[in-house]
């Protein structure tokens, strides 16, 4: 399977920002949380900006709501497709609003406030021409996915 091969050979755009994608199960963003200050972060900083203590890595989930989106039609950077889509996504668990790529194959389907779920796949290159894994949001949520898996008899795969 070429996709699996690509996943193995491509490097992640920035280390440590996603988890749960290696086995194709359920990708989630990884950010930070300071329990003392109750502050969430993405990406995870070294220190909490309130108390300057180290921040714990935190699973921010893979689901969100589309706050704003646009389609970039100019010559794309980093080998991204032309056109490609980006947006601000409000993450479900933390309430953080994060900038992210959107699935370029779904450009006509984006609507404000629609549910999105995270994918990690090869999208563009890393600046030196090597294929690069990037997180992006696609229309839909994991709930639909889980139902589909149940329908087809596929069990939920968990990563660790």
């Amino acid at each position: 399977m070429s996709e699996t091969t690509e996943l193995k050979h491509a490097t992640l755009v920035t280390e440590g920002i996603v988890t749960g994608y290696e086995d194709g199960s359920r990708p989630r963003l990884v950010g930070g949380y300071c329990p003392d200050c109750a502050r969430w972060y993405f990406p995870c900083p070294s220190y909490c900006r309130s108390c300057l203590e180290p921040v714990q890595a935190a699973d921010l989930g893979g689901e969100g709501k589309l706050h704003a989106f646009t389609v970039i039609r100019m010559r794309p950077p980093l080998g991204l497709p032309q056109p490609y889509a980006v947006g601000y996504v409000d993450l479900k668990e933390s309430g953080l609003r994060v900038f992210c790529l959107l699935d370029p194959s779904a450009i006509d389907r984006y609507r404000l406030d629609m549910p999105l779920r995270l994918t990690v796949s090869v999208l563009g290159h890393d600046g030196s021409g090597q294929p690069c894994l990037r997180p992006y949001f696609s229309p839909g949520d994991h709930h639909e996915d889980a139902e589909k898996e149940t329908d087809t008899g596929g069990g939920e795969v968990r990563d660790e």
Binding site: T14, I17, F69, T70, P77, L78, L80, Y84, V86, L101
Partner: peptide
């Protein structure tokens, strides 16, 4: 853009896109 090593830049944020998103909202 706002710095080659910034995560947003690596995720495809070019200068006009930030303002296009504001325009859409």
């Amino acid at each position: 853009h706002s710095g080659q090593s910034e995560l947003d830049t690596q995720l495809g944020l070019v200068a006009p896109a930030g303002f296009a998103l504001r325009a859409k909202r």
